[in-house]
Design a protein around this nucleic acid. Structure first.
Lengths: 228, 228
DNA sequence: AACAGAGTTGACCATATGGTCATATCGGCA
DNA sequence: TGCCGATATGACCATATGGTCAACTCTGTT
């Protein structure tokens, strides 16, 4: 079979993976226009020609990265109904989004850079799939407000608040590290931040926090996924 | 004197102003590396040589824009003491930051792009001036918590929450417009968002909202500054 | 050993890049 | 009128850009 390579991957799969990781870093910090194939190749430790041999073109590489990130994003978005517990749903929402940010900071930054330039490659996704997702969530939140389970806040602004507060820890990491005088955010920082956000946002919307048992399940969920 | 030009500006002042606005847009959407002098020149409606005649170099232009934005930041950061009213301070803080975002969306995006690439030009500012500002604010918040005027939340995460939630409406404007199916965020949107953020964040931290008279002062403050 | 297909890479191309410079025009003033 | 500094801009340069291509090596199969 294949010779003794890194964990059972063909040459193509291995190189593509190296290239994707390198490209994600470069695109994330310099945006689409600012990233050069040469820079990506150097970050991947390969000649430029080899990179283009695998990915075809700069544009295809960029699109592939965006699609990978949107797939991760979709995997995070589970469904809810108006009979679910608002506290559980909101807290799960915050924790999922924070986990995504933590596990894929470069991907989060890539997304931010894409949206900063007006989201030319993501218009369709944003205006289609994601918009519908937000609208359906918003309807449920409104029902909860009618039932007195939460304050009558605009559900769309609430969703954006959660997205922004979590996204921030990837996109503005450089600022946060400078200001808190740290080299990196550790597991305990992320746990503290997540708990803080859950506290403020749930309380701020007048939502009763979920019972301890549920919080503990979420907590273990995070720990389990982190230890890989 | 000078011939009949736009509102009493010398040639130099007028052209520099046009160039700065154009450059802010281009740098904001494509980052430092992704922005080309040619693109800036076209956005300004001037030949490339003329742009370079006025600004010297791409790098100087970029630094000038960052400095202008940091000056606006600093103008917003007024001082507080532990005897001030927490609700008034927090609400003023949120409203100031939101006003900055609204009045200078391109500048906000420029800042975001700079931080996304690791803040190479802003390290000094972030690690010096801004870090001290955050620390001093944090001490006051902690005193308030000790006095029982607010929940014992980590003040630094609270400051970042406010920054992220407000910043978001500039940096992710494309996403927000796509999802809410709008062409632009209007004055009424901004007022609603600001009120929403004040409600959630103050309540979420256990801070008593300021009295009506104070809110009205803030409100007029905003309106006054917006109508220019 | 011979072959085939995947992988590798330097040379090359047209175009774009940031920046310089010589030259030309402008507006006011003597 | 002639002069002068500020303004304007096309021509130009060295380098970097995304992408192509032909030649090469490697690995597994017959």
């Amino acid at each position: 079979m294949t010779s003794m390579n890194s964990p059972e991957l063909g040459t193509r799969a291995r190189n593509e993976s190296v290239i994707l990781e390198a490209a994600e870093r470069v695109f994330a910090s310099h945006g689409y226009r600012g990233a050069s194939v040469q820079a990506i190749a150097e970050a991947a430790g390969l000649p430029k020609s080899n990179v283009l041999y695998y990915v075809g073109s700069k544009r295809k590489l960029y699109v592939a990265l965006l699609e990978r990130m949107m797939a991760r994003w979709n995997a995070m978005l589970d469904d809810i109904g108006e009979d679910d517990d608002p506290g559980e749903v909101l807290e799960g929402f915050i924790r999922s989004k924070m986990r995504l940010t933590r596990q894929h900071p470069q991907g989060s930054r890539l997304f931010a850079a894409e949206v900063l330039q007006g989201a030319p490659f993501l218009q369709e996704y944003l205006h289609g799939e994601l918009r519908e997702w937000v609208r359906s969530r918003a309807r449920v939140f409104e029902r909860w407000a009618e039932k007195g389970l939460m304050d009558p806040v605009d559900p769309v602004w609430l969703i954006f608040l959660i997205w922004s507060a979590t996204q921030h820890y990837a996109d503005f990491e450089a600022q946060i590290l400078s200001i808190t005088d740290q080299g990196a955010l550790g597991e305990s920082d992320y746990r503290a931040i997540t708990d803080f956000l859950c506290h403020v946002i749930l309380k701020g919307c007048g939502v009763r926090p979920p019972s301890d048992i549920d919080s503990k399940r979420h907590f273990q969920d995070i720990q389990g996924k982190e230890l890989t």
